[in-house]
Write a protein that binds this DNA or RNA. Structure first.
Lengths: 334, 334
DNA sequence: TTGCACGATGGCAGCGCTGTCAAATATGCC
DNA sequence: GGCATATTTGACAGCGCTGCCATCGTGCAA
């Protein structure tokens, strides 16, 4: 095992003190151009990489933050990771990807253990970890910086990156209303995700803005999964008169609706329009391709990491959503 | 920011030397039951967590391994991560999840940088990072332990966890032959994934074992994506006689085939049978639900992490695959 | 009784860096 | 030219642990 060079060996070869090498590595000022070049050359030649552990131990920063998630959707997790990781690596930080169990009574102590063990400089929270008040309180108490992605509770405190779920859901609903639909079913997602209630709110507002009475019977409960979407759809489609459109709180549930429609030989979009939410990979893999609200998951995570690490930014950013009209929506049947 | 307790504070309160606390934390022998209990009690009371950085710096192990991946499939990455992470955390290791660009000329140096910076104890490679000879050579040269998940090249050297892709593809093909299909199209995946060629091999072997001549015209090239699967399907379906079944190298491509069939109003499975590979979430989200070969992705990663960290195990493990017969396969049309 | 192995504990160097302070040298200004 | 100030560099402690060696005590064979 060829042992890695240390900062001292670099300094010996470059003919400077090891403190000067440290200055070069950390891009500090007060190093002459000449010296800097010489040191950098040796660093490159030896392929020297400073020990992260030593930096963490000696310094007051660890250059490590963690992304906490507890989400069953591979698509969502994958893209959240990508966005956050990209920004972190651009800024020279390491990102620890940490799945947690947000329902566990030990959540807070598990997260604190991670923070202490890894000397974290901050944490990024994604839904539904964003909604655990005990965790937020403890982070506040310890003064540890954190950013939330799409927070529901305490929307206006702390740093956060989000989209406007209410407005997005309103647009979806207005798209359907514009196509002549009046009986529009809504399948809501997991209760623990606050976006669930925001989207329901947007749906309601759009109806009322167009003089359509909100009917609680047209709202079915789902659990964000394909299966639960199918079950909710069956429930809605059994009603008389049958809804001519269904708006599902995410794409998985919308795919469930679509499968039930196929099974029952209901033509989509001829007899039934379907809209999802997220624009996940799934939206383009089902048939017909799903009309859905695109949520910039990756960009949200990128923005969150940026908020954490480049603190001059505004504490709250809102990114744009976009309705992707594909082939599961059409004019309401007569 | 309440500052974390250190091992010295624990030792002071417990009335022992800090070295003894270290012994308790590392579960070393030569500590009396009495002392151990006392120390553990203080550790729990203070909520003490040893600094990972200090352990890494002082000791000869870092208790850190990395999982390297470069795979476009969220489903695959998500499950690989879960399996590896579970085994690592069971054994007290931290797993660094590291996306890499396997096509980059800097791959080797980037990975070596990570190894040095983090003092990694080992790395887990997933396809297609498993197939980069320069990387394997350099790891060998440095004597750093590594495990490969589903390796293609150099199958019989080093530690690895895999399924038998050839046998699995043979079973898929035999399922179709058993249903009376004789014109069976095959859509292969990315060239850089060796499993692509193994699956093609299995397809070929099954045909030949049943006296069906292998026809290269029935093999189309895909790139593991939904879109490429659709394109390959169009190509195959334009032929005369039209194949009565298509075996796609993964589920995304199979979903692409299914979409093309819907579009062209070809009944599945009445006029065309389709099989995928992986049993990803997608397989159950499309309609009709996809017949596919289940690959235990999560278990593979779990086994790989176990090989890495519990070195008494056999260096190579093969896990079982399983054909999931759903609704896209049926008897060949007359 | 002596001698010795072994279990239990402590002492201390040192892992590879950063923070702090001091020293040496250069620069500016009246 | 002289003194204040800035720039550049070095010396050294110490971050919180583990590895190694020393020490002390105890039980047991000779």
């Amino acid at each position: 095992m060829s042992s890695r060079p240390t900062i001292k060996e670099v300094s010996k070869i470059a003919g400077v003190s090891f403190k000067t090498v440290s200055r070069v590595l950390n891009n500090e000022k007060h190093v002459s151009e000449e010296t800097r070049r010489r040191v950098e050359e040796v660093v490159a030649r030896l392929n020297f990489r400073p020990s992260h552990a030593a930096r963490t131990l000696a310094g007051r920063r660890s250059f490590q933050v963690a992304l906490l998630y507890d989400n069953p959707s591979p698509y969502y997790v994958y893209h959240i990771q990508l966005g956050a990781q990209q920004r972190c690596s651009e800024l020279g930080y390491r990102l620890l990807l940490q799945p947690v169990d947000s329902q566990s009574p030990d959540l807070v102590s598990n997260v604190m253990a991670l923070i202490d063990e890894a000397h974290l400089d901050g944490v990024i929270l994604s839904p539904p970890v964003t909604e655990m008040p005990a965790l937020l309180d403890e982070l506040d108490r310890r003064g540890l910086p954190y950013v939330r992605i799409a927070p529901g509770a305490r929307k206006d405190s702390g740093m956060a990156a989000a989209i406007d779920d209410v407005a997005a859901a309103r647009e979806v609903t207005e798209h359907l209303i514009g196509l002549g639909h009046r009986q529009i079913g809504f399948i809501r997602g997991l209760e623990s995700h606050v976006s669930t209630w925001d989207r329901l709110q947007g749906y309601r507002e759009a109806l009322e803005a167009h003089g359509i009475t909100f009917d609680p019977e047209l709202v079915a409960a789902g659990e964000n999964s394909f299966t639960s979407g199918g079950e909710a759809a069956r429930q809605l489609l059994d009603r008389h008169p049958r809804p001519t459109a269904i708006f599902a709180g995410n794409d998985d549930m919308a795919a469930g609706v679509l499968a039930v429609a196929h099974e029952a030989d209901i033509d989509v979009p001829g007899q039934l329009s379907i809209v999802g939410f997220d624009d996940s990979d799934l939206a383009r893999a089902v048939w017909p391709p799903l009309t859905t609200m695109r949520q910039p998951v990756r960009e949200l995570a990128y923005a969150a990491a940026n908020l954490m690490l480049a603190p001059d930014a505004e504490p709250r950013v809102t990114l744009d959503h976009k309705l992707m009209v594909r082939s599961t929506t059409g004019p309401a049947p007569r």
